[in-house]
Amino acid sequence: MEEERRFLRDILLKSINEKQIIILKTLLTVGNTTLSRVLNNISKAHDIPLSTLKFNASTLTKYKLIEFYRLNGKRYVRVSPLGKKVLSWIEYDRDEAYLQHTDDLDEASMKVKNELREILSKLDGFHLHSSMTCIDIILAILYHRKITNRRLEKTNLILSKGHATPALYAVLKGFGLIKARDIASFSQPGSAFQTHAVKGNPLIKVSTGSLGQGLSIANGIALGMKMNGEEDYVYVVVGDGETDEGQIWEAAATASTYGLDNIILIIDRNGTQLSGETEKIKRKEPLGLRWRSFGWEVLEIRLKSAADILYALIRADEIKNWPKVIIARHV
């Protein structure tokens, strides 16, 4: 069985080229899109001539690895079931490594979630849901840095949804960046470990708590880093509710104007905000299209475990020239 898969993969790799694999993988992570749109994006992000991509896309169509469908009068494209199968055989080797990460992350996730419950037990579950839905995101960011040899203590992480700061404390403790005694004073007057992020704690470069402001600040850090010649990411975790704020969209336009490809924005699309369902309070959808129209590379994922974020971060690593947003839809 094992040998058979290896054999199959080798044959496939002889008939499918790298550019075709990029097209398939990109299509897997985006929502409704037209072929010309996605090829344009890939061309810019990977520096591949558009004509080359068009040729490869026609090959993929011919072998039925991608398929077209109609929606609202538009002709969209997606990976066909056969295409998914082919991709999984090609990615076979990587799957092995991913499985290891998945196991590691699942275990870590359980640990930090227990830690979070413990921290918030003192406060009658202060914003527990908000922290719970983004803790895997924070965990995956730090885990991704670890496996790509980026320094954890240098992480530029802006928690725009500042009320989820307890999730960060739990993850920091999980990675040994803070000790249990550090957070003993959590939420007490004068403590550095407040309910909302305060500058000075490990990984907290800026205080947050007022919604919709994190991306603007991250843009400033990202632009400053580019001016300084520093190569690293600025991660921003944004709640879906706070995209109600106009400032988020001001910042979205700024990031694409300046081509801030060192920004990775992750939207915790948990579907709820303080007073109820997000779509009833103020419409957010189509969220992916909104970000795409602002000039962002959009990776939409179904968030079942922290590993889903990890895979998206690995994908985001390959995209250049564009700011990147991962929309993590909770299943």
Partner: peptide, 25 residues
């Protein structure tokens, strides 16, 4: 190269200023 045009968006500009200060500017 050191002039940053943000457009007509003062709130974004204040956040941008904060971020640039954090990065040492």
């Amino acid at each position: 190269e050191r002039f940053i045009q943000i457009g007509i968006s003062e709130q974004d500009a204040a956040g941008m200023a904060a971020g640039l200060a954090i990065s040492g500017k």
